[in-house]
Design a protein around this nucleic acid. Structure first.
Lengths: 229, 229
DNA sequence: GGTCGATTGGAACAGCGTTCCAGTTACAGT
DNA sequence: ACTGTAACTGGAACGCTGTTCCAATCGACC
């Protein structure tokens, strides 16, 4: 943080990629994906478009930088544990909470994976698999499945957040959808109808964890030949 | 009033939502997401923007209609099986193959879930859980996890397809990324480095199935609390 | 043949990301 | 102290987008 002030800034209000990214995150958090335009950015930074383009290649790069920032912050907040299952759960929850706080990051990340930040998640999760007893040749599949699940949920969660958007009450919205589900045709949608009740009062975070645990159980299970215990 | 397309259309080249959606899919398949504009659409249909807006509310609705179309077609192609695991695998693969053929649908769907088509997937998968021996109260979590995984992968797969885009060779691209992985810092990315080899010659479809199986194994496992039956 | 709602085609609009460039700033070399 | 230069800035302009608006046309029925 203090590296720039060392050599004396060119100007006190000097522009920098960091300041641009920071401002972009503020706009995204405050008013959502649609609000992040170069015009909004220039106004907020009281500068011109050209100045921003000097620091940032284009909007995609800017978006990537914002999500990277969010994920990186989330990853550093993960507390370390010995128990590998708990560790993976902690990573998943950290990412989940990041997307909860910044839904726009979810939709961005699910559209543009393989950014550095995702590699960090991949690494962090993969590092636990050895301790979980997953054989080497299965680790790639397992890690990928976990990352896919986490990122996939991120995208859907973001979509959900976008759907409820304004001042609408979340539980009221869920209740509406649930009622809708209950009125589907019994013959073609029996399962959906049966699930309406659970949709109404489910908790996203708990559901995310439940799915993650299912995956972990599958991963930790011995390969499906005979179990000699 | 009653039947519009019964006999004698208004004009032989009559516009209709179906014809618009069909043309949109053609454009998307041929030239990708970015190519679908109302200008391209009007030119291809030799009409004006107003005519299209008479049948379609806006671009979002049009996009939703195209993905719905693709998914609906994929779902009808699923062959029925008695074995619930095989049935779920078949559903997953049908969806996967649909996204393989139409990558744009993947990114659209992961951004805008809960469309009718997704509900069809949810229903189809959920209907198998009873046969799998999943207790009622776990079925919601299990079905959601499965749909999340499938849709999440769709989004990432679509992103990957967009990345390789033009005439580039897929395996050459993977090799490049793998080489990149191998050169990461050993101290901070040991796992990523170890996985480089498997990334190089992995098969997306097989990997998808592997993850799905992990999830299925977890779902079919008895709940981990004490079973006092 | 006249009427009227359903449909069409295209011009016009506001807003977007991006490019371009003339101007300004801060320092290095003299 | 002066100047040359490269880093940086601000804003006008461009081409493209989704969308709106409306005058013209179509097809069925009186």
């Amino acid at each position: 943080m203090a590296s720039k002030a060392e050599r004396g800034e060119r100007r006190t209000d000097a522009l920098s990629k960091e300041r641009i990214v920071e401002t972009a995150i503020e706009i995204l958090d405050a008013d959502g994906e649609g609000a992040l335009t170069f015009r909004a950015l220039t106004e907020r930074l009281s500068t011109g478009a050209g100045a921003i383009y000097w620091h940032v290649a284009n909007k995609n790069e800017l978006l990537a930088a914002t999500t990277n920032d969010v994920i990186a912050r989330a990853m550093t907040s993960v507390v370390h544990t010995k128990d590998p299952k708990k560790a993976i759960r902690a990573i998943g929850l950290a990412v989940f909470d990041a997307f909860d706080a910044h839904p726009w990051a979810g939709s961005q990340l699910s559209r543009e994976p393989w950014q550095p930040a995702v590699l960090r998640i991949f690494e962090a999760i993969g590092g636990q698999l050895e301790a979980l007893g997953v054989p080497q040749r299965s680790q790639f599949d397992s890690a990928t499945a976990l990352v896919t699940y986490i990122l996939g949920l991120a995208g859907q969660y973001a979509a959900g957040a976008r759907l409820i958007a304004p001042g609408t009450d979340r539980s009221a919205f869920l209740a509406d959808v649930a009622t809708e589900w209950e009125q589907f045709d019994e013959a073609t949608y029996p399962f959906v109808r049966r699930m309406a009740g659970q949709l109404r009062d489910h908790d996203d975070r708990a559901q995310f964890l439940a799915g993650l645990d299912l995956l972990l159980t599958g991963i930790a299970s011995p390969p499906k030949t005979n179990t000699t215990t």
